[in-house]
Design a protein around this nucleic acid. Structure first.
Length: 334
DNA sequence: GGTCCACAGGAAAGATAGGGTC
DNA sequence: GACCCTATCTTTCCTGTGGACC
């Protein structure tokens, strides 16, 4: 059934990106100065999850690398590398300058100094989920480095701009904006068809099943590819040659559960307890949630820290906070 | 409309942990 | 091994907001 499992990963960059020509052209234009030895325009890619923002950025940089040859780029997932130090560290890692840097013993000033000293080929930094940065001063840091080009990726422009220093806002106003809309059903089907062509045996899935996956994914290609992957694995497990409707009945909830499970695994012990309480109780008001949490752990964190945990979990879309003030309740998302 | 109170979340200080230096 | 420096995490203190009650 599966001929090339890499193709079924959402991160895989295809040979051709479908349905994103205007966006690719806009991004290529922003990066074009690099071919003349100049820094690129800062590009700001905005749109909901699973619409191909990261894929387009990587695809364009790969094409640019083929054209210019000598170019470096590094993607930073600001969701994981959210602090100023971690972001700078990841960027330095892209040019192999972190060998002698050790966590917590090197000031971020030194990291910045090293970036300023960099005199290699043109360097493009992709800040993915840039709206998740906890310390946005790092954007000002990066603007202060000559020759460094940036592609910023965010879900919502207003979430990003609302938290930025005025100096960064004024610079970002002139950035090249590229907006990504959700894919339509036909577009998702054709993206899936391409993945099937490259990654599965011929005849592994027919159009009605692809349409069902696309319909479930509601415009999110990442979700659609996840369902296709889960379905292909289930078909392999059953040793059947084709993905059928009854396999999708299993694969669709499983793909959704896989996303939740992998996110819950990233939580610390305290956050997992909070998640489990909400999974059992379905909905709780803040005092009841905190009391239940205190009952289950020997050395509980303070209420304020728990609020930070809950905020983080809501960002992960694991839980939902409904109502304001006294009407606030927490519940499992989805 | 005014007051009270629970709650969220920002800011700053404190605690902790890892690595460097002597 | 003691001390210093640093990033990160946690706590404390505080303010703003909005629903409940009169």
């Amino acid at each position: 059934m599966i001929e090339d499992a890499r193709v079924l990963q959402a991160e895989w960059v295809p040979r051709e990106v479908e349905h994103r020509n205007p966006e690719l052209n806009a991004l290529s234009n922003a990066l074009e100065p690099i071919t003349d030895g100049e820094p690129a325009e800062t590009a700001l890619l905005v749109g909901p999850s699973g619409v191909g923002k990261t894929c387009c950025a990587q695809f364009t940089l790969e094409r640019l690398r083929e054209a210019v040859l000598d170019i470096e780029y590094q993607r930073v997932n600001c969701w994981q590398d959210y602090s100023r130090f971690r972001t700078l560290y990841r960027i330095l890692d892209g040019i192999g300058e972190t060998l002698d840097i050790h966590r917590q013993s090197t000031a971020h000033d030194e990291l910045l100094e090293r970036l300023r000293d960099y005199d290699g080929p043109p360097y493009v930094v992709v800040l993915d989920e840039v709206d998740q940065l906890e310390d946005t001063r790092v954007l000002y840091d990066l603007y202060s480095i000559d020759g460094l080009s940036m592609i910023l990726i965010a879900n919502r422009e207003e979430d990003l701009f609302g938290r930025l220093d005025d100096r960064v806002v004024s610079r970002l106003q002139s950035a090249r904006r590229v907006r990504f809309e959700k894919y339509g059903l036909e577009q998702i089907v054709s993206i899936l068809e391409a993945r099937v062509r490259w990654g599965l045996e011929e005849g592994a899935i027919e159009r009605p099943e692809l349409e069902r996956i696309a319909d479930t994914a509601a415009g999110d290609a990442r979700v659609a590819i996840g369902i296709l992957r889960a379905a292909a694995r289930e078909a392999e497990r059953r040793e059947v040659p084709r993905i059928t409707d009854d396999i999708l009945d299993i694969a669709i909830p499983r793909a959704q559960a896989n996303i939740t499970e992998s996110t819950v695994e990233k939580l610390n012990e305290h956050q997992q307890i909070l998640y489990n309480i909400l999974a059992e109780e379905e909905e709780l008001r803040p005092p009841a949630l905190y009391e239940a949490y205190r009952d289950r752990i020997d050395e509980p964190r303070t209420n304020r820290t728990v609020r930070n945990y809950l905020q983080k979990m809501a960002h992960y879309n694991l839980i939902r906070a409904e109502g304001k003030g006294r009407a606030r309740t927490y519940l499992i998302d989805g």
